[in-house]
Design a protein around this nucleic acid. Sequence first.
DNA 1: GATCCTGAATGACCTAGGTAGCACAGGGCT
DNA 2: AGCCCTGTGCTACCTAGGTCATTCAGGATC
Lengths: 238, 238
Amino acid sequence: MISAEDLYSNYQSTLNSCELFAGLKKDQWLDLLNHFHEEKWSKNSCIINHQKFLFHFYIITRGRIKMYNVDDFSHKEHTLFLLKKGDVFDLFCLLDGIKHKVYYECLDEIRVLAIPMEKLREWLNKNPWQYEHFLSYAGGMMRALESNVSQLIFTNITTRLLKLLLENVNLKSQKLEHINDLPNKEIANLIGSTRAVVNRHLQQLKQNGSINIARNQLEIRDISLLLEELEKQNGNQK
Amino acid sequence: MISAEDLYSNYQSTLNSCELFAGLKKDQWLDLLNHFHEEKWSKNSCIINHQKFLFHFYIITRGRIKMYNVDDFSHKEHTLFLLKKGDVFDLFCLLDGIKHKVYYECLDEIRVLAIPMEKLREWLNKNPWQYEHFLSYAGGMMRALESNVSQLIFTNITTRLLKLLLENVNLKSQKLEHINDLPNKEIANLIGSTRAVVNRHLQQLKQNGSINIARNQLEIRDISLLLEELEKQNGNQK
DNA sequence: GATCCTGAATGACCTAGGTAGCACAGGGCT
DNA sequence: AGCCCTGTGCTACCTAGGTCATTCAGGATC
């Protein structure tokens, strides 16, 4: 068992970037971290037990986890969120304590900080001014879901793909992040399409010189070309 | 200005069915209702000012309001939620205080109870145990949005239409509610399609005897036929 | 009654995107 | 080296659903 002090010094920057617990001072963190322990999950491991998230709440400190849905009939997958360092889960369970029928898969070696759901709820009750951050975080997530719905209804695959790429460009380095090493299949799951179709569109982007493609490797060559393409799409849908 | 006492006696049953304020005793309601006033909005009136909802929070006591999105480019509409008696809005603004770019239109003569956002926030801070209900309500809304996303990705128009119908059947009376008097165009907006396509599918349901159609009037004739049709759709999507 | 206006019904057409199949390339393994 | 496995690239095909245009039907109003 690692002490709260050690957890804090190890993950200080991640914890402070964590919107859900915004504004906590060091001693407040230490108080809270007493209830946390660390877990390591290996790459490609899946969590299919929906119950699990009723009992613990997690903060990711390293690696990516996809949260996805599987259709009972077609067995197709759809990735709802790609969780990264500083993200938390499962917020659905925390909010209303009801089982959340959704799956998780680790895309990298994962480290998480875990706290028993009960302890977190107790802590919230003892520190009610923190509720505000939780509400506001929930608001952000609802907006994300809503904009997801709108995109699905209003825009075609090309547009969704372009937006996905643009949202994951690091502004400083101009490089593609988070999704750059995913196979076409996973890209497809993120925008609600299929491998073949995504590949078809990626080929087009490659041909006009806006991206480079290699095995499990996407690279942005020219952002302005991508933006131009997006404009063109918007125009088409009039 | 109507007194809190009067508001309470007029709308007691609506207020008590309001999940967001679950468990409030009469005197607690009276305390809160002091900050409320009543408004009447006329049928077909629209609210397109996104700012408005930063300053007041509303509870519907009568009539239906649709909350919808419009695509900037195609000008298509999509109805996110059909709000009814006992529903509240805008939760997005309440949660994080950020402008919510969404439109509202009254489908009937509307009565709402309105409270200044600030007053509601103050009241929450004074009664922090109420936060739990707000969190849990937000959770429910997130689940609704998530299942909306899944439906859009996994299922075809027929399935979405069938589910919409089945979700709006009153279990006791076996009659269609809430959406029974909407024109095809509005039905289409609810499931993310177009009038012509929805009509095409409705005709089929009419032909196999599961529904009746008249001008601005949908009627369920045989629920079991609808359920059967749904099964068939699920099977097809294997 | 005559005149509008909105919405329903229908048919013809078009296309984005899903599907299936196969050849091939790279990278890791024994 | 030879093998296997996972992804990619590309073809040819199919169809659900979007689009457009026109006719028809029911209420409401004058």
